[in-house]
Amino acid sequence: MALVGLEELRAAQRRIAGVAVRTPLLPCPWAADGSRALWLKPENLQPTGAFKIRGAYNRLAALTDGERARGVVAQSSGNHAQAVAYAAGLLGLKAVIVMPDTSPAVKVANTRAFGAEVILVPPAERDTTPVELVDKHGYVWVPPFDDPYILAGQGTVGLEIGEDAPDELDTVLVPCSGGGLLGGTAAALKLTCPGVRVIGVEPELAADAQESFRTGRRTAWPITDTFRTIADGLRTTSLGELPFDHVQAYVDDMVTVTEQEIRDTVALLARRGRLVAEPSGAVAAAAYFHHADELDGRVFAAVVSGGNLDPSLLAELLAT
């Protein structure tokens, strides 16, 4: 597949303007230690609570009239689900969302509140059920990451970082699941700020992308392995084909963080940064707080990719 270029990224930026929030790049003086500094990109401030609205709206807004009339179907553990439901509501489209029955209740409730029909299935059926629905009803499938419009939309995160970053910025940390956010952000940064290093971050319990990056072969992990992590938005079993091409072309390294490091960082961001980050949204910052010495950077930016978590989980993590 052809890589997404700067023209597609700029087109996505124009298309989502006024729908996705242009989130600020926040300085974190409380996280500096004299030898390094941190900036946060708070995508938890999006109207759906996560970066996914960028790609979802970019994809749906580009549909033809005939495709819009058919309605759309998507699968997701929550953030892509909410984004497609929200974007479909803005555009007046029917949306059916297939979600694992292990999805956080808050994400299921929000998806329904945005007007979508939600179908809960066992995790192993999340990726097969949409295919059946497309065949049965003729819906347009909106994949979570393996699509050039989705990847370009997520890549607008990188365009904004490049536009807002201090001249000293040298390292950007980005969460990785299916690779749409990482691949798109890396492409945008390398095409506009080629000296900046881009590092993907995964839970060590769902490190299929790191393995793929290191071996040069797109590798899938069993769903029983990836569903062990608390970071429910990062449980995808493999990189998409198009994101993998972008990761190979533009990403400098892939690192992992532990479950305890993720938990600690959710609490730290809430207490010190006044930001509510779900576990998936905290992994990039966790790499800074727990592994900065290994990353060889001085001025970091970390993408806080989402903030949709059950209040009871946030209370639990703050209490420990």
Rank of each mutant, 00 (worst) to 15 (best):
M1R: 14
A2Y: 05
L6W: 09
L9S: 00
A17E: 13
G18D: 13
T23S: 08
P24I: 13
L26D: 01
A32D: 15
D33W: 08
S35L: 11
S35D: 14
R36L: 01
L40G: 02
K41T: 08
P42Q: 02
L45P: 02
L45A: 04
Q46F: 03
G49D: 15
F51W: 07
A56V: 10
Y57M: 06
N58Q: 06
N58M: 07
R59A: 07
L63E: 11
G66K: 08
R68D: 07
R70G: 14
R70H: 09
V73P: 00
A74W: 01
S76F: 05
S77C: 12
G78A: 15
G78Y: 00
H80Q: 06
A81S: 10
A83H: 01
V84N: 02
Y86S: 06
A88I: 09
L90A: 08
L93I: 12
K94H: 15
I97H: 01
M99Q: 12
P100A: 11
D101M: 12
P104Q: 04
K107D: 03
A109R: 12
T111N: 04
E117M: 11
I119M: 12
A124M: 13
D127I: 07
T129Y: 03
E132M: 11
L133Q: 07
L133I: 09
P143H: 12
D146A: 09
D147G: 09
Y149W: 11
G153W: 03
G153M: 08
G155Q: 03
T156R: 10
E160R: 07
A165L: 04
D167K: 15
L169R: 02
D170Y: 02
G183F: 03
G184A: 04
T185M: 02
L189A: 07
K190Q: 00
L191Q: 10
T192K: 10
G195K: 02
R197I: 04
V198Q: 09
E204L: 09
A206F: 10
D208H: 13
A209S: 15
F213Q: 12
F213W: 13
F213E: 04
T215Y: 06
T215R: 05
R217G: 03
R217H: 15
R218G: 02
P222M: 09
F227M: 13
R228K: 14
T236C: 06
S238G: 05
L239S: 01
G240N: 13
G240C: 14
L242F: 05
H246Q: 06
H246N: 14
V247G: 03
Q248H: 13
A249W: 12
A249K: 11
T256P: 07
T258L: 12
T258E: 08
T258R: 09
Q260N: 06
E261P: 04
E261H: 13
E261V: 00
T265A: 13
T265G: 11
T265W: 00
V266A: 05
A267Y: 05
L268A: 15
L268Y: 06
L269C: 15
R272C: 13
R272S: 10
R272P: 06
R272W: 05
S280N: 04
A284H: 09
A285G: 10
A285E: 08
A287V: 12
F289I: 10
H290W: 15
H290C: 13
H291R: 14
H291W: 02
A292N: 04
E294W: 14
G297Y: 01
F300T: 02
G306F: 01
S312H: 07
L313P: 00
L314N: 02
A315N: 05
L318Q: 10
